[in-house]
Amino acid sequence: MKLYRFLTDDDTSVFCHKVTAALNKGWVLHGAPTYAFDAARGVMRCGQAVVKESLGEYTPETKLGDH
């Protein structure tokens, strides 16, 4: 099955560590990162899509972070 996740966080090192952790678990970057201003909170937010091929069959109950 092919899995997709969209990782987001504030523009801090926490976001970079989240993406790095996914890459080290076999996820692959998909597309360019995004960067947007969250006016309600007054902070910049980052996002990055990642994909991964995994064994098994996808269901809505699949816990993507466990793969």
Rank of each mutant, 00 (worst) to 15 (best):
V19M: 06
Q48L: 03
E57L: 09
T59L: 11
K52I: 09
N24Y: 04
T20F: 03
D38K: 06
V19L: 05
T62M: 11
L64K: 01
L64A: 01
A49H: 02
V28W: 00
P60M: 10
T8I: 06
M1R: 06
P33V: 05
V19T: 07
V14C: 10
V19A: 11
G26Y: 09
E61H: 06
F6N: 06
A36T: 13
E61K: 14
V50P: 03
T34Y: 07
E53V: 04
D11Y: 05
D66T: 06
C46A: 01
T59M: 09
K18E: 05
L23G: 04
V51F: 01
H67Q: 08
R5L: 03
F15P: 10
T12H: 11
A40P: 00
T20G: 09
D38G: 03
D10P: 05
G47C: 06
S54L: 02
G56F: 11
T59V: 10
Q48D: 05
K25F: 00
K63H: 05
H30D: 11
P60T: 14
P33G: 07
V50H: 00
D66N: 12
A36E: 11
K25A: 11
A40C: 02
R5E: 14
A32G: 08
M44I: 04
H30P: 00
R45Q: 14
R41D: 04
K63C: 01
L29V: 06
G65S: 12
F15R: 10
T62Y: 13
G65H: 11
D10T: 15
A22V: 04
T12K: 09
E57A: 14
V28G: 00
E61N: 09
K18M: 11
D9H: 06
D66A: 13
D10Q: 14
V50Q: 03
C46T: 01
D9V: 00
L3C: 14
D9K: 00
L55G: 10
K2V: 15
G56W: 13
D11C: 07
G26L: 08
P33S: 07
V51S: 01
Y4C: 03
R45I: 10
S13M: 08
V19C: 12
V50Y: 01
T34S: 15
A21V: 02
L7A: 15
G26A: 05
A36R: 14
M1G: 14
Y58N: 04
P60Q: 12
C46M: 06
Q48R: 02
G26K: 10
K63R: 12
Y4D: 07
D11S: 12
K18C: 08
F15Y: 04
F15H: 07
C16P: 02
V19W: 08
A22Y: 05
E61M: 04
V50F: 01
V19E: 03
M1F: 05
F37K: 03
R41C: 04
G47M: 08
M1V: 12
G47F: 06
G47A: 14
Y4K: 13
D66G: 03
D11E: 12
D9T: 00
T12Y: 04
V50G: 01
G26D: 08
A39D: 15
P60E: 12
G47P: 14
A49W: 00
V14E: 13
S54A: 15
K2S: 09
D11V: 05
R41H: 12
G26T: 11
D38Q: 05
T20Y: 02
K52A: 06
M1C: 11
T59A: 12
K18Y: 03
